[in-house]
Structures are given as structure tokens and as C-alpha cells.
Design a protein around this nucleic acid. Sequence first.
DNA 1: CTGAAAGCGCTTACAG
DNA 2: CTGAAAGCGCTTACAG
Lengths: 338, 338
Amino acid sequence: MASSNAPKRPATILDIAAEAKVSKSTVSLVLQGSDLIRDETAARVLEAAQKLGYVYNRGAAELRGKSSKTIGVVINDLMNPFFAEVLVGLERRLVDTGYTVFMAHTSENLERQDRVLQTMREHGAAGIALCPVLGSPASLPQTIRAWGIPLVVMVRPLGGGTYDFAGSDDTEGVKLATRHLVGAGHRRIAFLGGRPGPIFDRRVQGYRDGLREAALAFDKRLVFASNPTRKDAYERLGDILAVEPRVTAAVCYNDVVAFGALAALGERGLRAGSDFAVMGFDNVLDSAHSNPPLSTIDVRPSELGEHAAQVLLARIEDPSGPSRHYLAEPCLVQRVSG
Amino acid sequence: MASSNAPKRPATILDIAAEAKVSKSTVSLVLQGSDLIRDETAARVLEAAQKLGYVYNRGAAELRGKSSKTIGVVINDLMNPFFAEVLVGLERRLVDTGYTVFMAHTSENLERQDRVLQTMREHGAAGIALCPVLGSPASLPQTIRAWGIPLVVMVRPLGGGTYDFAGSDDTEGVKLATRHLVGAGHRRIAFLGGRPGPIFDRRVQGYRDGLREAALAFDKRLVFASNPTRKDAYERLGDILAVEPRVTAAVCYNDVVAFGALAALGERGLRAGSDFAVMGFDNVLDSAHSNPPLSTIDVRPSELGEHAAQVLLARIEDPSGPSRHYLAEPCLVQRVSG
DNA sequence: CTGAAAGCGCTTACAG
DNA sequence: CTGAAAGCGCTTACAG
């Protein structure tokens, strides 16, 4: 952080060249760490740069070099800790490889998503990692590919077309959760939370699969959609308890929904686990210390982010290769809620 | 999102100029929305741009224009929903005014913070919003000012020196929480969680103030530090219960810590609120639907983010004005935990 | 191993 | 109201 002293006119490579008595190409080369320059010369250049308080101008470098070391990531719901964990994993992996990440939050708003994507394009992003908002057009990956920008779609698949993707096996995961509840003796199990869309459909499918496996009938009155927020899930579980008193367990759309369910249960003096079972999905960090600790499906969110970064980096390396996918294999982690 | 068709060589203003039969200066002007250009001409230019699938190159514009419309924000702990909410508020306000935000996460790591700050500098950020990591040097604001980059420090004050700041009144907030507990009849109240540092010290001060107000003795064995995570707070409350059985209430460093406390209580079959009181701090969205709902000190996190943006924007407008501060006035919100 | 030259895509005085 | 020209700070062939 040591800045000698704020120069009036910021120093450029030309100033360094003058100071070090070399040409500016030489300066540029040593700044890039090229080994074309003799060590002694390089040392002199670096010293001059230091002395002048030189700051590398990445903008100029990118303009000329055509390269760009920035990656845009767009997140649809940062309020959900799952996405925050994905983001942290992604970012860690990316900055370790010298990229700088450029984040934007869409709040599940399609128009906003279009805007931020456009901005990233104008900034010449080297790649984009996207958690698409609900209702994104299936053609979005092709559109971005047409822009010539490498893309990885995260978490929420977009119908049709091929594109790089990092997410989890939703159907299998929820099947695991359902099977677990059935194994514990539950017979009337609700599916709670989430809004219809690609993830929701896959997870409900897992729920149906789990039920069928045990020869239990699927009753669509037992799937209760809601916004995937604590508040809405909390209210929805209240409905279930009132309307379907024979339900003894719920597999939840995700951990946030499950947390809402825990709150609704607690309010009624019900103990999650013994009085009513609830299963989450994601295994967000918080789920290990909720009240009570949440039984859930682990998809290792921050690892998922790292894999997404990996996939994107691979695509940047090889723009035309076949599409790559990372699907986290879900694992059941049993704690006390179910 | 309608891109006509991917051009081989991306179109530049020069191509547009040729297509529209004007000079490139004219194109530049209409792209900037200048009213120096006749409407008819402007329309022709825009049409040509559209036709050629033109994409504005912000990098080039910033290099030449010296302006930069990007703001860097560095967050120390995204895993804490408080910061996520602050970030969302900040980002919303910023993109509404045409800035693009550039996020980096430091994981409370000083070295990483230095790195990302440096990167933002090299990218020519128009401003920086910083939640400093614990242990940041007090001189950091001056350093960044010497770089010529407008700065707003968020949440965690840095000792000494003047700089723009957006945060909350920590001492007053915790005093409110403590007073509330005292009013409810508690006499042995612990302070739980957090690591020594500027925020911690201020909050413990509020705890002492609240105690003194009621003529209760401050007992330093009743302040239990911990990492501000659910897990550590959970474990720490276990310690308290074992070592100080006469403690009947805890004012927590923040909501995350309080959530950990709720988990520890629940595990022991204790009901937060009636068996043991816990007060949070922040009023994170989740606190309204925890189990049980958390009584806490509201500092309106996302509003805090918006105000931070405001302060930064004002500083960008007026680089040399006196320093600005936003201190959220804390309000007690009583739910069930205390 | 190093230098001279061209140019990335834009903006901004300066003329007219 | 529009055009010709210079230049932002860098990188990259091309020579030597």
C-alpha cells in the first residue's frame, strides 16, 4: 500500500522510460513480467516505476491488448445465503487466477438483468457467470454467445439449447430427502415452497419420484408453492397445518424455505424433528446451527461456485469446445429437523 | 437484448460514421445524448448503430474521457446477511445513477484487502465503498485519498483521522438493548460475541452504559467474545450456561451471533424469551422469522447501504468538501426472544 | 535484448 | 450544427 506521494500528473510508462533511460516498449515488457528483458534493466525500470508512484492503467492495456481480465457475475438473489456462498466460492477461484470480478444483483428482475448484461458487454467482460432470473428467455445463452462472451449459467437451468452449466442434481437431491422421510415412517409429506420454474419442476419431480418409489400416491394438493423466502414459507406452513392437519413432514424447496418452516413450527410450540419433520435443500452454512439444526441435502454451495469458475475459465481457454457441466452430487445430511 | 447478428469485426463509431455519412465526432456526440446534434441526424446515427450491431466501448471512452463510471465495493464478510443487505442497498442506489459496481470480498483478510484495493485503483475506479477488515491500519483512508479516489468507509470505523463514513450508532443501540433487558427484570446479563475491535468496543460500551444506568455492576467475566458466526456463538453460549448459570439474558454482538444463541438454547430445550432472553443487533431480514423471532436493534441494513452510496456520490461531486457521516439511529424492535 | 512506429476506440477542444 | 485533428496509456509486431 506504500504510495510514495501523490503525483500531480499520474506517471505513465513514458515517464518511467525517461527515468530509466529505456524505450517505453521495454517498460511495457517488464511490467508484463516478460523474460525478454535483462534482469538488470528490469530492476532499473521497476525502481523508476516505484519512485514515480506509477499505477498501471488496466483500462488502457485492455483497450490496446484486446484481452480484458474482468469477469461479470450476475446474481438473482443475494439475500439467500446460498447465492452468497456460491458467489464467494466463485470469486475466490477467480481472483486467485488474476481476474477481477464485477458483480451485479438483479433481484429476480428481468429488465435489470438485461441492463447489467449489456453493461458487462460494454465493459468488454472476458466472461460472464450468470444465475438467471426466473423467466429468462431460453435463448439467453445463445444471445450471449453471439456477443462472443464466454458464459457459464449457474444453478438455474434454461430450457433447451446447450451451454455451460454449474448446478446440482435437483431431482436426485429431493428424491433423497423424500426417501429419507418415508424411511422415517412419514406417509403424508408436503412439498413446500418455491415458484414454478426449472428448479421447482425438477425438485417436485424428485419428490414425486421419492413418493412413487415407496408406492405412495402423489397428491398435488400437497405441493405448496411460495416465494423462496423465510417469510412466505413461514406463512405457507401455517396454511398447511390448518388445511392438511394429517401432514407430518415437509420437504422444502431450499434451506431458506425450511428456516421459515422452522419458525412456523416453533411459533406453534411444535418441535421440528419429533412433532413434524422438515428437510431443507442446499446445506447452507447456517443450517448447521438453526433451531433446531436442519436436516438437508448438501450440494456444497461454495464448491459449486468454484466449479462454476472452473467451467468458465475452461471456456475462456477453449471458446469452441463442447459444453461443460458440473452437477453437484447431492448428499443427505441428517441433523435434527428430520 | 436484440442483437441483429454478430459482426466479424466489432463495429466502431467510425463504421457508424461511414454508414450514417457524418463524422465520428458527430457519432460520439449523439451516443452521449448531446443536444448539439439535430434530431434528424441523431436518428440516422442511432439507426446506423443499430444496424451494425454496435456496442459502446466503455473502456475506450473512459481512457480518453478520464471519467470512469465504475465504483469498487469491498466487503469483509458476505456470509453475514447484514453485509449482503448493505451491499444490495448500495448497489441498487449506484446502478440507478448509472454506475457499475465492482465487488470484491476480503474474508477479513488484510492482505487480500490490499490486493483488491490496488486492483480497483488500477482500474481507475471513480470511487470506493469499503467495509474494512479487522485490523486495517487507521491510515487507510488517507492512503486512498492520496490516490485521488473518493472513499466511503462503511460499518466499521477506523481509528483517528477524518473520512466519510456510513454506519450505525453502536453504543446507543446496545444501550437500548441492555436497557430493555433490565426493564424486563434481568439482573445478570451477558454480552455475547464479536472480536475486539472498533465495533466490539463501541457495543460493549453501550452494554456498560445500559448497566450503569440501572446501577448494575459491570462484570467483565460476563463479556464473552467469539467470532461473529453462528457456530462460534452457539458454542460460546454453551460455555455461558455451564459457567455462569445465573445469567438469564444476553445482548449479542449482532444478529448472526444471536441466531447461534437461539440454536444453543433450543438444543437445551430452553425457550428464548421466557427461559432466557436474547437481543440481537442489525435487524437482518431473517430475524423476523427465526425460531423464535428475534428481538433486536434495527439499523436498517439496506438503507444503510443506500446512504453509504449517497455519501460516496456526494464526495465524487465535491472531492474537497468536509467529511460526511451517516449514522443510523438504532430502534428497538421487540419480538419474542427478549 | 531493446527501440521506433502504429493503433486499440473513443472524446474533446477548435474551427467553420 | 458538424468536421478534421490530436491524444488518452498502453501493446504488439517489426527491425536491428
